[in-house]
Design a protein around this nucleic acid. Structure first.
Lengths: 190, 190
DNA sequence: GTGTATTGGTAGACAGGTCTGTCTACCAAC
DNA sequence: GTTGGTAGACAGACCTGTCTACCAATACAC
């Protein structure tokens, strides 16, 4: 087996290389903007191999979103822990993400924008992702009768901040405005 | 000149028909998902006519965004007036939009998601659009030292609500959560 | 009214590229 | 033999953009 010297994933199996490459290209360039030949070339596989593991591009898109969900949630939970584990950890955690040079917004929001009409399954996948994000946020809030309501408000503001960070030149305003909102929403904001 | 009996814009000039058709298809189906042949067929023009008015698809995309900006801002300002003209008008105005059967989120956010990498000009166009939206919001708030800060927070929450309304089954939660945030943010919320 | 030029359109072919997906023939390792 | 790969060709559809040949309406000069 000839490995692709250019791929940063060359110790992985072919399937993993495809999935990781697709993840990077789909997120960076857009899903429709990424043809399967590009993924194939970057992953260092052939078309037969590609179709052995992913029966269609749409199947790959679903796998990409599940993979992205797992990967992002893992990062999110870890980052929140690293910054103290309570709700105020949201700001530095998101700052870490927004300042990442590869930041291109939320892959799920992007996929709804791009494919919401032609591949409507991505909408329900996004709903599940956002539900899980909100659950993580809810678990960081102290128990109260309005815990769920607050977590919905926080999650909605986080989505707003993600959007703003995506079109602004720098993410600083998005983070600052998000903090303003959270300070108003949450009485025990530190 | 043979008019296209199927086009709902058949009393308009060819250029206007193209632009209106592009607006509808780009917003409903996605920009990349809409080939120029589809626009041409729906607008009832030929390729020569299309290229007479729009030297490229990208030129049409820019025109589409400018046209969308003008159209949306006109609607936004009008809707806010219709619902009373103060900041609480935001909720029913957005409800009107979100409940529209053609609602597919914010065309500007969608274009950044879809084309942010391949046509980065859409990002600065989006920034301008969002700045104008925020100015309208600011003008609805009573004068105060934190008027600009509040308008930024409101605008960010509005973007969050747009996103949520886009992936939820119905927009009711998005509107309710937005109202919760605005109630916390703005002391004189009615 | 007629002829001409201009303007704004038509039908449709074409070129070359990209896209998704199907397939053949072959190889290496176990 | 099985598994997991390779190189690469192919088909058909779609995409953006270029071009030819022609037509109708209007304005203007005579």
């Amino acid at each position: 087996m000839k490995s692709n010297g250019n791929s940063i994933y060359s110790t992985l199996s072919a399937r993993e290389r495809i999935l990781n490459t697709a993840h990077d290209l789909f997120y960076r360039e857009g899903i429709r903007a990424t043809g399967i030949d590009w993924i194939i070339a970057e992953a260092g596989v052939t078309k037969v191999t590609f179709y052995r593991y992913f029966p269609s591009k749409n199947a790959l898109i679903y796998e990409f979103l599940e993979y992205r969900h797992h990967r992002w949630m893992t990062w999110f939970i870890d980052a929140l822990q690293r910054y103290g584990g309570d709700i105020s950890a949201l700001i530095p955690a998101l700052a870490e993400w927004f300042h990442d040079e590869g930041f291109r917004g939320c892959a799920f929001i992007n996929s709804v924008s791009e494919l919401g009409s032609s591949l409507p399954e991505v909408v329900s996948i996004t709903r599940r992702h956002k539900q899980d994000m909100m659950s993580v946020i809810e678990n960081m809030l102290p128990p109260s009768a309005k815990r769920e309501q607050d977590s919905q408000a926080v999650a909605l503001a986080v989505d707003g901040a993600i959007i703003r960070a995506q079109f602004d030149v720098t993410p600083d305003a998005a983070l600052k405005v998000l903090e303003t909102i959270l300070r108003s929403l949450l009485p025990d904001w530190s």
